[in-house]
Amino acid sequence: MIIVGGEALVDLVPTVAGDGSAALRPALGGGPFNAAIAMARLGADTGFLSRISTDGFGNSLAARLRDEGVDLDLVQRGDELTTLAVTDTSDPGAVRYGFYVNGTADRLVADPGPLPDDVRAVVLGTLSMVLEPGASVYDAVLARESAAGRVTVVDPNIRAAVIDDPAAYRARFVERLAHTTIVKASIDDIAWLADVAEESTLDDVLPVVRSWIEAGAEAVVVTLGADGIAAVTSSGVVRSPGVKAEVVDTIGAGDTVLGALLARLHLEHELTVGGVRAMSSDAWADVLGFAVRAAAVTVSRPGADPPRITDL
Rank of each mutant, 00 (worst) to 15 (best):
F173E: 00
A167E: 14
Y169R: 09
I158A: 04
G149Q: 04
S128C: 12
R150Y: 09
L177I: 08
R170D: 03
N157V: 08
V137C: 11
R144P: 02
T152E: 00
V151C: 02
A148K: 03
R170P: 03
R172Q: 09
S128V: 11
I158P: 01
I158W: 06
H179R: 13
E175Q: 13
L131W: 05
P166R: 09
P166L: 11
R150W: 05
V153P: 02
T180W: 04
V162G: 06
V130Y: 08
R172D: 04
L131Q: 08
A135V: 06
T152R: 00
V154I: 14
V153E: 01
D139T: 13
L142I: 10
R170H: 11
I163L: 11
I182Q: 03
E175P: 00
A148F: 03
A171Y: 02
G134W: 00
A168N: 05
R176A: 00
D139W: 10
R172W: 06
D165I: 13
I158E: 01
E145P: 02
Y169A: 12
A161V: 14
A148D: 08
V154Y: 06
A147Q: 12
V141L: 15
V141W: 02
A161W: 07
R176Y: 00
A160W: 05
F173R: 01
I182E: 01
V153D: 03
A140T: 15
I158T: 09
A147Y: 05
A135T: 03
P156M: 07
I182Y: 03
P133W: 11
P133R: 09
E132P: 10
F173A: 03
N157G: 10
R144L: 08
A140V: 10
A143D: 11
P156L: 06
S128H: 04
S136G: 13
V141M: 14
T181D: 02
Y138W: 14
A140N: 12
N157T: 07
D139Q: 12
P166H: 10
G134P: 02
A148Q: 04
I158K: 02
D139K: 10
L177S: 05
I182C: 07
E145L: 09
T180D: 01
E132N: 13
A135F: 09
V130T: 11
H179L: 08
D165W: 09
P133L: 09
I182D: 03
D164E: 15
R170A: 09
V137K: 07
R159Y: 04
V151D: 00
I163F: 12
R150T: 02
S136A: 15
M129I: 15
V174T: 14
A171K: 10
I163Q: 11
A160E: 12
E145G: 06
P133V: 07
A148R: 13
A140C: 06
T181E: 02
A167T: 14
